[in-house]
Simulated scan of single mutants.
Amino acid sequence: MSSSSDVTLASTVLGTIGTVFWCIQLIPQVWYNWRQKKTEGLPAAMGLLWAACAVPMGVYLILQSIQYLQGSIDLLRSSSDPGWTGSTFDPDFKDILVGAVATVLLAAGLIPIYFELWKRQGRVIGLNWVFLSIDTLGGLFSLFALAAQGTFDILGGIMYIVVVLLEMGIYLSHIIWRIRFRGARKEAKASGRSLEDVLEDCCA
């Protein structure tokens, strides 16, 4: 955890933007699933693991918020009492454990998607790109918020970096798939057949 005195205006603004992104990220995915009337390619394990992650992540972020609040109290007391040296809020084993559990669950929620990619030779099915983009931006802005602080929160940084890297892998996988099967996509468009039928013939 970073020191409460390291919280800056930039880190607060960036962190708020990241939080907003992560609060609204699922709206496009829910809308997409409702329109499609199916959730093929969207593993249920992802939702379950992310739901489980919400508890330890929330606890970890609350611990950080308490730290920030303590910094404000220290600032107020130091302004009225020159002899006040401030207090410390050092992370103990329990804090680190909670953050580590949140990181593992957050990353584990994205792993099932890679099994879906493997089954479809790298093609992304069922994921809404707006949802994925918002989620990635949430991770990036949260990471930028940590970087804008005087001291980098290593555990929090790992949490956000893991998410961003795993999601970058999803983008890259689909881009590679589009390059590999560009001929099949062109054939489907020219013949009026569905892409799935053309791919089935190609891979038969």
Score class of each variant (00 low, 15 high):
119 K>S: 03
37 K>W: 07
114 Y>T: 06
73 I>S: 05
100 A>P: 13
39 T>V: 13
115 F>P: 08
45 A>C: 07
73 I>E: 02
61 L>W: 15
26 L>M: 15
110 L>R: 07
43 P>Q: 00
121 Q>K: 15
73 I>P: 07
56 P>Q: 00
78 S>A: 08
47 G>W: 00
108 A>S: 08
27 I>R: 07
75 L>N: 12
50 W>L: 09
80 S>L: 06
101 V>W: 03
112 P>Y: 00
107 A>R: 03
54 A>H: 09
76 L>V: 09
42 L>H: 03
97 L>F: 14
44 A>S: 12
61 L>T: 15
77 R>D: 07
102 A>P: 10
104 V>R: 00
91 P>H: 02
33 N>K: 03
120 R>S: 04
92 D>W: 13
27 I>L: 06
84 W>Y: 15
42 L>V: 06
110 L>S: 04
116 E>V: 11
115 F>G: 09
70 Q>Y: 09
89 F>P: 08
76 L>S: 09
34 W>G: 06
106 L>E: 02
27 I>H: 10
62 I>L: 15
97 L>I: 04
74 D>C: 07
74 D>A: 06
27 I>G: 08
98 V>E: 01
78 S>I: 01
115 F>V: 01
87 S>H: 13
118 W>F: 09
56 P>G: 00
123 R>L: 01
114 Y>R: 08
33 N>Q: 13
88 T>N: 08
49 L>Y: 15
93 F>L: 07
98 V>M: 10
105 L>K: 00
46 M>D: 03
59 V>M: 14
48 L>K: 14
45 A>H: 05
37 K>F: 06
61 L>A: 13
71 G>Q: 02
46 M>G: 07
107 A>I: 11
108 A>D: 00
61 L>R: 10
38 K>D: 02
73 I>C: 03
118 W>G: 05
60 Y>F: 15
73 I>Y: 11
87 S>Y: 11
69 L>W: 11
29 Q>Y: 01
44 A>C: 04
60 Y>T: 04
63 L>G: 15
57 M>V: 14
86 G>P: 01
61 L>S: 11
108 A>P: 02
71 G>D: 02
70 Q>C: 10
110 L>C: 05
62 I>P: 09
95 D>K: 04
106 L>H: 12
55 V>N: 06
72 S>K: 04
66 I>M: 14
102 A>S: 03
112 P>L: 03
62 I>A: 12
50 W>H: 14
58 G>S: 01
95 D>P: 11
85 T>P: 05
58 G>K: 00
111 I>D: 06
38 K>H: 08
100 A>Y: 11
26 L>H: 06
62 I>V: 09
67 Q>R: 15
96 I>H: 05
56 P>F: 01
94 K>S: 11
33 N>F: 12
45 A>Y: 02
31 W>Q: 14
78 S>N: 12
77 R>V: 12
35 R>I: 03
64 Q>E: 06
78 S>P: 11
99 G>F: 03
100 A>F: 10
98 V>N: 00
60 Y>K: 10
109 G>S: 02
114 Y>Q: 08
111 I>W: 10
78 S>C: 12
40 E>R: 05
93 F>R: 07
44 A>R: 14
65 S>M: 06
107 A>M: 13
